[in-house]
Every structure is written in structure tokens, then in C-alpha cells.
Computed example of a mutant assay.
Amino acid sequence: MKISRLGIVALAVMILSCSSSTYRVFEKPIKFDEERKQLTLEYLASHYGLEQEEPVITPKMVVLHWTAISDLERSYDAMNPVRLPGSRKGIAEASALNVSAHYLIDRDGTIFRQLPDTVMARHVIGLNHCAIGVENVGSADAPLTKAQLKANEALVRHLKRKYPIDYVIGHFEYTAFEDHAL
């Protein structure tokens, strides 16, 4: 089953309007040491003008992604290092802080939390300071599974109950927020 761009938007609308469900989240934290904390604080200051003592956010949005990597462990391994690998030269100019996400969802729908919801993760241009990132293991050749769709739905419902989430977008939709108050 492939999800089109319009399909992600429809999924987001459905998720926000549906009733609650239960789900399980397993802890699989990425490295968040003093170096990552400092790089995150620097990112918040340089990109959003937010001078803070802790790299915290107030979530107002959930951004759904796919990893472009076909398996869980390699997806996790890509986000675990504190610094961007040399292969990410295109985004390295903005910061040495590695990309990451709050959640990683495996092909079978298992949800792993990599960071606390209110710690900034680098996953979406211009919106990291207010967005929870959800990475789905998959790619154009390995589209979202039904289990992943259900896991995304349950997770977004939970996050909507917990935080003042106003938007659920696919990563590609970040450009719609250029010149937006967020």
C-alpha cells in the first residue's frame, strides 16, 4: 500500500478526529550526552533565536517521516551519533547536530521512543522548535505498512491528548509553513 502526499494529509485529518486507542511504546534512546545537548542549544539559538538553558520545546505539531532506510537497526544507527556523518554535507552547513526523531516506527508497527517528547530533535527545516518527529522505517521502495499506519494513528492520537497539537504534516509539507507564525 502506497500513501500519496494527499494520503498523508487525509491520514492526519483522520487521526485528529478519531477516538482514542491504546498502544505500546518501547524505549530505544539515542545518545543525548552533553555534546548533543550543547549542539541542540546552539541550534535553537542560531535557527530560532531561542536562548535556553535546556533544549526543550512545547510541541504544537507532529511531523511524519520515513527513514529512506530499509531496516530498524540501520535507521536507529543513522540517528544515534551526536554529529552528522560526512555523507550529510548538504545540511551540515546549518549545524553539526545529527538528525534525529522522537519516535521510530518499525515495519511491524512497533513504536520506539528515542527522545523525550519535549526535547528538541533535528528532523524538519524551520519547525524543530515546536515539532515532534516520527520516523517510519521505509522508503519509496518500501512504503508504509498497514501496521505502521495504525501505529502512527495511535501515536498521534496519544500526542494530541497530551499536548496542544495543532498540525500533523508529512515532512514534505514543511514548506507550507514558510512565513507562518511557527
Rank of each mutant, 00 (worst) to 15 (best):
L144H: 02
T58E: 12
L41W: 03
N136E: 01
I165T: 06
A131Y: 03
I165H: 05
Q38P: 05
R74P: 01
K160Y: 12
S4K: 09
V56A: 08
I91M: 13
L11W: 08
K162V: 11
I132F: 03
I69W: 00
G86R: 14
C18M: 15
E27L: 09
S19K: 15
L182H: 11
Y48T: 00
S100R: 10
F32Y: 10
D33W: 06
L144Y: 03
Q52T: 12
E51Q: 14
I69H: 00
Y103I: 03
D71F: 02
H65R: 03
V56F: 10
R74Q: 09
N98A: 07
I57C: 03
K146E: 15
G109H: 07
H123E: 01
A121F: 01
A154S: 12
K162E: 13
N136S: 10
A140I: 07
G49I: 10
E51G: 08
I57F: 02
Y76I: 04
V56C: 10
T40I: 08
E93C: 14
H158M: 12
F177H: 03
E34I: 04
F172G: 06
V156G: 01
K37G: 04
I8H: 04
L72V: 00
M79E: 05
I125T: 09
E54Y: 11
A68M: 11
T40V: 08
K2N: 13
T175E: 09
F32P: 00
L6K: 15
E51L: 14
P81S: 04
T145Q: 04
D141Q: 14
G126S: 06
S17T: 14
A45M: 10
L39S: 03
L39P: 02
I165C: 06
Y103M: 06
N152L: 05
A12H: 02
Q148E: 01
E53R: 12
G90N: 13
I15Q: 09
V56H: 12
K28H: 07
V137W: 02
L115S: 08
R122N: 06
E93S: 15
D33P: 01
T175I: 11
V119G: 09
S95M: 12
V13C: 08
S87A: 13
G7L: 03
L115M: 14
D71I: 02
M79K: 08
G49C: 05
L144E: 00
E53C: 10
I3M: 03
A147T: 06
K31Y: 06
C130F: 07
A78S: 13
L50Q: 11
D71C: 03
